[in-house]
Amino acid sequence: MNLSPKVSIIIPCYNIATHIKKCVISLLCQSMPDFELLLIDDGSTDKTLELLNVFEKQDSRIRVFSHTNQGVSATRNRGIVKAQADWLMFIDGDDYVKPDFLEQHLQYAEIGIWPISGMVNVSEGGIENKSEDFTKLIEKFPSGILNNENLFEIIVFESISSPCARLYYKDDLIKHNIKFSETLSYQEDLMFNLEYLKYIDQIQILNYFGYYYVKNEESSSSRYHVNFNHLPLLLIKLQEIAGKNKSLEKIKPFLFDTLLKKVSNSFHKESGNNFITKKKEMKELFNSMYFFYVRNFIYESSINSFYKTALYFRSFTGLYIYYRLYNFLKK
């Protein structure tokens, strides 16, 4: 294998024996062959590791690693350390890509430039739909360039919440100690990307949809997250990127949506927390800088009137009643 591949592709693998073959084949068929493929098993209990070892024997560009189950963030972080190339890509093992996927991104591989492309959502039955948000982003910026004046547009269109379908410069990750948080269970990818964005001069939006995201039955936004305590840090990171003279007004809808996810997570039916613990969580949230930053957006939102009132006046009792009814009606 080439000792200095152009790209290191990092794939965390956990119990994806039924999907990983399609993913790997789509990469081995790339029009740009100068890459290494890091397949990292995260303590799978099915035949995933067995399949990975077979792949490794079939192609010298493939390297397989394995460890006890530590989660996707720890697995990706290990991939960053093991990568030999200057440029990195992250792909999920149940997804797949077009044959020119690497080539499309590598043509923009330059320090300070962040190439980002669109995703095709693949739902049950194989139905494919291009990301609507990314399509709107392309339409708004036909030049394909976002610079320091409009970098936040990438957040407005929710195109920074995944580490896939983009290219990273490894030296920046190592130099600035940029890692995936191994304690967060929600928006850890967003936090990683925001940290990387601090060292980016220009985002290159590719009018290209070559990454096929296969939707799972249970999305990250709907399940219960044990660690959802990053909102104060999220606000700080965004303010660091914006600078003292820039407002975050444009992304208040995004910030508010994240606030709602935090609230709904606290009252999630799968949460094992008791009444007192939930009340404490809400008190901390209501007294946070994050809450007061987005509070004036509450009545501009489309949530129902009862929810708006309870949230605006920081009424734990109102929210408790609302979610008791909500979870009851969902049964």
Rank of each mutant, 00 (worst) to 15 (best):
N2T: 05
S4Y: 08
P5S: 02
I9F: 08
C23H: 13
S26M: 02
M32T: 15
L38M: 13
L38R: 05
D42R: 05
G43Y: 03
T45K: 07
E50T: 08
V54A: 05
Q58C: 12
Q58S: 14
S60Y: 04
I62C: 03
N69G: 04
N69F: 07
N69S: 09
N69E: 03
I80E: 01
I80L: 09
V81D: 13
Q84G: 09
W87L: 06
W87Y: 15
V97E: 10
V97W: 03
E103Q: 13
H105Q: 08
Q107K: 14
Y108D: 06
A109Y: 07
E110L: 14
V120F: 10
K130Q: 12
S131V: 00
T135P: 00
L137N: 06
I138G: 04
E139S: 13
F152L: 14
E153F: 08
I154W: 00
V156H: 06
V156Q: 13
F157T: 10
I160K: 00
D171C: 04
D172P: 01
K175L: 14
S181D: 15
T183A: 05
T183R: 12
L184I: 08
M191G: 04
E195D: 13
Y196G: 07
K198R: 15
D201V: 03
Q202A: 02
F209V: 04
Y212S: 10
K215F: 08
E218W: 03
P232C: 02
L235N: 08
I236S: 01
L238P: 11
K246G: 05
P253Y: 01
L259T: 02
L260K: 12
H268T: 12
G272C: 03
T277E: 14
M282V: 07
K283N: 07
L285R: 04
F286N: 06
M289F: 05
R295C: 09
N296Y: 11
Y307Q: 07
T309Y: 04
F316V: 04
R324H: 11
Y326P: 01
F328W: 04
L329T: 01
K330V: 01
